[in-house]
Design a protein around this nucleic acid. Structure first.
Lengths: 182, 182
DNA sequence: GTCTATAAGGGGATAGAC
DNA sequence: GTCTATCCCCTTATAGAC
């Protein structure tokens, strides 16, 4: 029988994201995803040609947001020495991570899958763009500062993100800003 | 035929760690591990009763090191306000992560497996011990500082650890110490 | 200790009816 | 668009010979 909702593809993505995020990509079968929204695995294949195609569609919105953020920041030409501007950038990054934390979890916890569907270059690319805005240098020591700061923010979002409290955001952004200081 | 080396269990652990770290636990089969050291999957089962038992044995040395570090630091009663002491603790943590970075990778990238074999309580426990030494508080904002600092160090080890350069270590430890400052 | 052989089950993916 | 039925492959794990 036909289903009541219009957008089955969106329902599939929502169910898949939840399961991929909770259990990991490899540990989630297409049967489980299909059953969660009340269709069969074969019906899912009508909407998505493969598991990887579904995953690719799933993570896309976050990359769109990252590209937009990169465009905007580069357009405004941030001064890496101005701490107020740096703080504003980290805050934007925190918000982006928080909004997309399920996708972030999937990407962080499934690096091999990321490599398989060729998301690694995209991840590297946005990371380099934001690093460039924040430290403006290719020097190893500078890139380490950026990794500690942004990596720390990502970790804090994954660990504390479910309680989206202003205090937590403030503490995480503060710590990242200090980590970036030379 | 009998094998030439004495410690087949150690060979199994070494091959498994390499594959688990590179490809992830779920994506690595016991057949692949066995073939890498030239035995069959059935022979591997003689040495380890299950994949989870092998994994548990594999990660154990790192937890032993973490426990020893926790014992030592608590015995010395670090002053969280003394930055030289804090720096020394972060340096010890960096060295530990570097020495065990293959195991660290496995634990970071396979959270569901970690939960399945009941490693999560152990991870939480050492994290809380080291957090306690570094910030000495249960307050959420304090714990966030510790997560950003230690999470940042872990990330930097995973990203830059293969080039074990003093400059990288120094930059990462510096950044973590700054992140911890109030 | 290591082997061959096999059990039992799940995975992704497809064919074709409706 | 969704279904049932099926294919083929790989997995973990065990039994029993050597």
């Amino acid at each position: 029988m036909p289903r009541t909702t219009v957008d089955t593809r969106a329902e599939i993505r929502a169910a898949a994201l939840e399961l991929f995020s909770e259990r990991g990509v490899d540990a989630t079968s297409l049967r489980e995803i299909a059953e969660r929204i009340g269709i069969t695995k074969a019906a899912l294949y009508y909407h998505y040609a493969s598991k990887d195609a579904l995953l690719g569609d799933l993570v896309d919105p976050m990359f769109v947001e990252l590209r937009e953020l990169g465009d905007e920041l580069e357009g405004r030409s941030i001064d890496a020495g101005d701490e107020a501007q740096v703080r504003a950038v980290i805050e934007r990054f925190w918000e982006l991570c928080l909004r997309n934390r399920a996708v972030m979890r999937v990407l962080i916890h499934n690096p091999r899958v990321v490599a398989r569907i060729e998301l690694a270059p995209r991840m590297l690319h946005w990371r380099e763009r934001i690093d460039g805005v924040l430290v403006g240098s290719d020097d190893a020591a500078d890139r380490v500062r950026a990794v500690v700061a942004l990596g720390g923010v990502q970790d804090a979002v994954v660990v504390f993100g479910d309680a989206d409290l202003p205090r937590i955001r403030e503490a995480a952004v503060d710590a990242a800003v200090r980590a970036l200081r030379m």
